[in-house]
Amino acid sequence: MNRRFGARWLLWCALLLFSGATEAAARSYPMDTMAPRSDLAELIQSVYVQVTLWDLLVLVVVIVALFLAIFWFSTRFGEPGEEPVQFHSHMGLEVAWTAGPILILVLITVPTVRAVFNTQPYHWPKEALTVRVIAHQWWWEFRYPSLGAQTANEVHIPADRMIHFELESADVIHSFWMPALGGKRDVVPGQINQITLVAKVPGEYYGQCAEFCGASHANMRFRVFVDTAEGFQRWVADQLKPPVMPASGLASEGARIYQNAPCAICHRVKGISGFSKQYEGGFRGPDLTHFAGRSTLAAGVLDNTPDNLATWIQDPQTVKPGALMPRLGLKGHELTALVAYLESLK
């Protein structure tokens, strides 16, 4: 009875493991913390692996000792027999299990402390590219002070060049996390935190706010595009271009709607709308100058398609509860035109 139950349980576990494995094989893990693609993430992973191995060793020791104790000594129950020996201390043993962990901790501490000092440099080379990250409830603003470019929710960085992220918050505490490129750093209002790293492999990486920041904390995602040096140059050049004003058709109608609707109060399209002199610290809503060039909208919540954009404009609160963007009440033709305009902003 018991054995059959055990066998069924095992089978069940195997099935689960199998389906888990299929999922693992079939899918990618865009937020995987164990797939380092930068020098910082690699350094972290090396410490991570070392500590995990020591942990596993200790765990195995505990499990073996505990289960041996249970299986050897509980079987005697019920048998008439002598009382167990009432021993209550053993100096040698106690010294051993005090000294052993201390030794392991020393072995863990050395790489840890080294990594702590290596990952938080006070100085970085002049040629490092500075990216200002400004966190808002619930989206990300990115600025390149040395290039004059800015974007939102999708940051591009060149590979093999030192990047220096400066983290600022416009409201509450957020946390800037790109698992593949390194650990997170909190974005704290009133101070500027730093992350310094060299991305090694070009590609698209996911990121997400990791510190609870209010109603839509779950909807504060972003993408990191690590470009080749040339690719990055091209991207920057595109970003610096003014947007093309649509001459006619639906899109030009949409441009008029954009300018007349409240959109322009919070969002900027360079040269067309928004404040001539930009705020010192950022905008209330993402910069839309090159909106159509992004792959997602609403901070990584939806794919950037006309349909999704229409959904978002119609009812931002359903997509992102608590978002500051109001319901504008645009319908039918107006909405289509506005979407067409925004999607023309390559």
């Binding site: 913390t33 972290i44 942990d55 765990l59 901790l105 840890t112 702590v116 996390w177 650990g183």
Partner: peptide, 19 residues
């Protein structure tokens, strides 16, 4: 306790905290 030792190490913690 053992997973606690992991994030007692700041570099690891930067990946693990708030996850």
């Amino acid at each position: 306790g053992l997973s606690g030792v992991m994030h007692a190490s700041p570099p690891i913690d930067l990946q693990q905290t708030d996850s």
